[in-house]
C-alpha cells in the first residue's frame, strides 16, 4: 500500500494527515493519542503491531513546544506511519499517557524520552533515566540545555561551551 492509499484509508478517523516524501504522518491530540494508537494497532486492515521508534523534538519558542513522534511499522503488511502529538510548554514537565500497555518496546523508548526531554509518561512501569547518570540534573536534549560548560564528577575535565571553543 503506498502512502496516498494509506492516508486515504485513515482520513475518516484522523482528519489531520500529512503526506510528504512518501511518508504518512498523523497528528493527534494528547487525549486521543492512546485511543488512536490502539485503533492503528488493532484494525485488521492496518495492523501496526510494532513501535519501531519514539522520538521527541523541542521547539522552545513555539506552542506546542514538544512534539512526540511514534514511528509505527506493520510487519504483516509492510507499511509505516508516524503519529505525532504536540505538547504545550506548560505544564512543565509535560505529561502523556504511556503506551507500554500497547507496545512493549515503549518501555525503554519512553525512558529515553523522559531522560533526554523530561516528558513524563503516566502509567509507565519503571520511569527512570536510561542513558544519563541517575543523579544528572535536567534533560540534556532540550534546546534550552547547554552542549557543554557544565561541571562533571571528574576533576580537571571541564569542557567549555562551544562558543568559547572556536568551532
Amino acid at each position: 500500500m503506498d502512502a496516498e492509499e494509506l492516508a486515504g484509508q485513515l482520513r475518516h478517523r484522523f482528519p489531520d494527515i500529512l503526506v510528504a516524501r512518501g511518508e504518512v504522518t498523523v497528528i493527534v491530540t494528547p487525549d486521543d493519542m492512546l485511543v488512536g494508537l490502539r485503533y492503528l494497532r488493532e484494525d485488521p486492515g492496518l495492523s501496526f503491531g510494532f513501535l519501531s521508534d519514539l522520538t521527541v523534538s523541542d521547539w522552545p519558542e513555539l506552542d506546542p513546544r514538544f512534539w512526540v513522534a511514534y514511528h509505527l511499522r506493520s510487519t504483516e503488511r509492510g507499511h509505516r506511519i508516524r503519529v505525532k502529538v504536540g505538547l504545550p510548554p506548560e505544564p512543565d514537565p509535560p505529561q502523556l499517557p504511556s503506551v507500554t500497555s500497547l507496545y512493549p518496546t515503549a518501555d525503554w523508548l519512553e525512558r529515553e524520552a523522559y531522560d533526554f526531554f523530561g516528558v513524563v509518561f503516566d502509567g509507565h512501569p519503571d520511569l527512570r533515566r536510561i542513558e544519563m547518570p541517575d543523579d544528572w540534573v535536567g534533560h540534556p536534549l532540550r534546546k534550552t540545555e547547554p552542549l557543554a560548560g557544565v561541571n562533571t564528577a571528574f576533576t580537571g575535565a571541564f569542557v567549555p561551551p562551544p562558543d568559547q571553543r572556536g568551532l
Partner: peptide, 16 residues
C-alpha cells in the same frame, strides 16, 4: 545499565 557509550552526539550535531 546502559548509556556508557552515549556521548551526546545529537546535541553535538546541533552545533555543527
Amino acid at each position: 545499565v546502559l548509556g556508557y557509550l552515549h556521548t551526546g552526539i545529537e546535541k553535538n550535531t546541533e552545533y555543527r
